[in-house]
Amino acid sequence: MEHYSMNLTLKVWKQKNTKTKGHFETFQVKNISSEMSFLEMFDVLNEQLIAEGKEPIAFDHDCREGICGMCSMYINGRAHGPWHHTTTCQLHMREYKDGDTIVVEPWRANAFPVIKDLVVDRQAFDRIIQAGGYISANTGNAVDANSIPIEKHKADEAFAAAACIGCGACVAACPNASAMLFLSAKASHLALLPQGDPERKIRAVNMVEQMDKEGFGSCSNIGLCEASCPKGISLENIARLNREYLGAVFGEGGDNA
């Protein structure tokens, strides 16, 4: 594709801290290359703001290669922008034309309070993992591959679920601000493997309880989470989590939870 430069108008959410009210501020950026990533465009804008003696826009970022899950930006009504299966850092400016206006907001969910500007606090996810997203047996050193035989399709599904990077796009996109896609991915990658089997019922119930405590909504099976997930986590994981939960309610051992 031909390389080109563009001037853009950005409407970005500015908020001093969790306690204050935020508002949109409009910025102009010039000479943005179509080869830049969306975050590099923000770097240019921030350098411009610093040069003008203004405060730069706070935004989360780390790996800039689509695996850390930090770059939480809601761009023109889509989590991580319009591209499928990408994070914000993988979104490139060739998506936009000269003169475009782009609206950038933080993840909106009461469970993800805004810390500053576009940075939200996602510790609620950590606490959901702490409630059961692990196995409690000490496993020692990594064992040789294939010492525990696991069916190919189960290994594949567990791997696909484990691809979740905990970015929170599912919560941001969900009309109910539900964390079910995240939770179900974290429960699934353990429930599918023999190592996670003994604690599966306690895990399902405890993680759901923690999700409710954190103030996430319930799942309406709408599917905007799956559509927004940069890692393509499937809704089938939510069905699996529901099965695990039902197993805990009606099956033996549910009372341990």
Binding site: F24, Y74, G77, E105, A109, N110, A111, A177
Partner: peptide, 10 residues
């Protein structure tokens, strides 16, 4: 669960 909504059409 979402007190402040999005400004853009989602």
């Amino acid at each position: 669960k979402r007190s402040i909504g999005y400004a853009t059409n989602t």
